[in-house]
Write a protein that binds this DNA or RNA. Structure first.
Lengths: 338, 338
DNA sequence: CTTAGCACTCAGCACACGAGAGTGCTAATC
DNA sequence: GATTAGCACTCTCGTGTGCTGAGTGCTAAG
């Protein structure tokens, strides 16, 4: 059974019936029959007509039957079709917009909290899981380097990146060094590397010579800085903040926990998530990934609605939601875009 | 039915049978009958005798029946009794000790990763969820203050605490300030507050006078520092690193996801977790909290094995595991203590 | 093209029934 | 007096049967 071109345009009535089916199923999670459709959505036709249309939609691959005598449920292709049709028209109700603005007004400081809040907001607005990743540049620029003595031979190296991200690394020293020397070394490194990418910084570091104690300290710590910066560059996803997973757990399709486990496995599958984020970051639109459109097996039961933010080409991050394929796409897309 | 003093000593045979029941049930998760017990554990007695003993253990409140014709399962009190008897004798097998040492040998730097690793190690060693919280002092001492310019009127304030914890706060400035001035302000604040607690720092800050631009900047930022330090003090649990929740999800008792949901809710219940951690931090032993011994309802299905680490009285953190009440306490306790 | 009518299908539920596991008790045995 | 064998009893669990109702697909009439 070859997949039909799902984007093929449908006549308006079929369209609205598909919409009604999705709407109903999203709300109730039970297969919807022709009768219920006629009753609850004032279509001016009889159930028999609706049945014919449903049958047609089914041969188009947009709906299915769980079994012969049950109602219809949307297929992934059905959701896809639906999403395409609303993707550029869904606006969030003004009340909610206001609410979200208000919440973000409170917390402008403390950048890490921003992502947490973003995830939380998305989660509570949609009653599903919200995700957010910190903005991350293509090539990291160092903004600031600092060294703090912890004990005789142990120091904490702190690297601040231009986007506000932090890295903290403990450095063990060959011999005891005082805070004063550490500070001097930090200043040298700071001047050397501030504003530079990993490659630039490496060249700069190579020019350090002399073998005074400070110089060797600088060289030693400098290596660690480079390693940390490269590591930061290599990390596709710094961290994914998520919230509202409890909401997802409440959905009836996850009553059996094996399915639920797959969702969590999916979340821990950083590789695939990274791939998706890359894909999303390349565009500037809200994107939707529905069920089986996801390659990894554990993602088959969930959908993602993702959108990039930040300055395109420079630092970008991604926000979005994750939920069962049966989710309120309209609202989700609205919230995420906003 | 009043709870019997569960610590009451049992004769050695009852003891070993209780142990056998727990052992068996922990492995299989199915109620264990007298016959299976005799077969699998070479007790030199018949099933009838075992039945008598089981009945006795049941009236003592250490075992129950799910229904009349099923085997016995341990009650929370039964686990408790068992745990008491092994709490000071369980050692981890040498092989595993070696493995863990090896893993930790790799990562001495990067303190945040330490907690992550601790949680991961605990999780994989026990096939259940591992937890770890950063060490946290009673009163925070500031170690270092730094200010980094982000844009004209926006700066990032970084506070390093003595224990290596970091706080990052964004500060908006009334008028544009250059990095140079920021650095000067940072140096002043640094000298003022380094090594101080919140209360000390406040007094020191009050002595700043003069109304040059730097002074007012220092005052302004100083306020923010104080707020951050107080906030840090007030936070009971900085963050709980956890890993291995997927393991817990595999347990048959959580096949129905509503129970599972309660576990997650429990984890998000910071208040109670904080209370427990406080309690644990006050001692220097491994502590076990079993099922219904936990006050909040959502914790009734799980047990925690927790141990403090760090210097008592100063900075302490907690590591431990969380799992179903039916968990391998022996191993868990061994690992956690280690 | 729409609709009424009708036969048909099939999941879900209720119920019964037998098998098996495990108990509790009593009486015999060591 | 403790242990054991024997036995009646209880209750879960799996299987099979029959029924019900929702919902379909098709045909023929409007």
């Amino acid at each position: 059974m070859a997949l039909p071109r799902s984007a093929g345009s449908l006549d308006p009535r079929s369209e609205s019936i598909l919409r009604a089916v999705i709407d109903e199923y999203v709300q109730t999670a039970i297969p919807v029959g022709s009768q219920a459709l006629v009753e609850r959505y004032g279509l001016g036709v009889s159930s028999a007509t609706v049945r014919n249309i449903l049958a047609a939609l089914e041969t188009s691959g947009l709906l299915t039957h769980p079994h012969t005598s049950a109602g219809r449920i949307p297929t992934d292709a059905g959701y896809r079709h639906f999403v395409e049709s609303i993707v550029d028209s869904s606006q969030l109700p003004a009340v909610e917009q206001l609410m979200i603005r208000h919440q973000f007004g409170q917390v402008q400081h403390a950048s890490e909290q921003w992502f947490r809040l973003a995830a939380t907001t998305l989660a509570s607005a949609n009653r599903i899981a919200g995700l957010a990743t910190p903005a991350k540049p293509r090539a990291a620029h160092v903004r600031r380097i600092d060294l703090v003595s912890i004990s005789d031979r142990l120091a904490s190296l702190i690297i601040v990146f231009r986007e506000g991200a932090l890295r903290q690394v403990l450095v063990t020293l060959a011999e005891p060094v005082e805070q004063g020397d550490l500070t001097r070394a930090a200043v040298i490194l700071d001047e050397l590397m501030a504003g530079r990418t990993a490659a630039d910084a490496e060249r700069a570091l190579a020019r350090i010579d002399g073998d005074g104690p400070i110089q060797s300290l600088v060289r030693r710590v400098g290596e660690r800085v480079l390693a940390a910066v490269r590591d930061y560059d290599a990390t596709v996803i710094e961290e994914v903040f998520s919230d509202g997973l409890l909401h997802v757990m409440e959905a009836p399709e996850f009553e059996r926990s094996d399915k639920l486990r797959r969702v969590f496995a999916a979340l821990e599958n950083r590789a695939y998530l990274g791939e998706l984020l890359d894909r999303v970051a390349g565009t500037n639109r809200v994107q939707v990934f529905i069920g089986a459109e996801n390659a990894p097996e554990e993602m088959r039961d969930v959908s993602l609605v993702l959108a990039p933010y930040g300055e395109p080409g420079r630092a970008v991050g991604v926000v979005g939601v994750l939920g069962p394929t049966r989710m309120a796409y309209t609202q989700a897309i609205g919230t995420v875009r906003f």
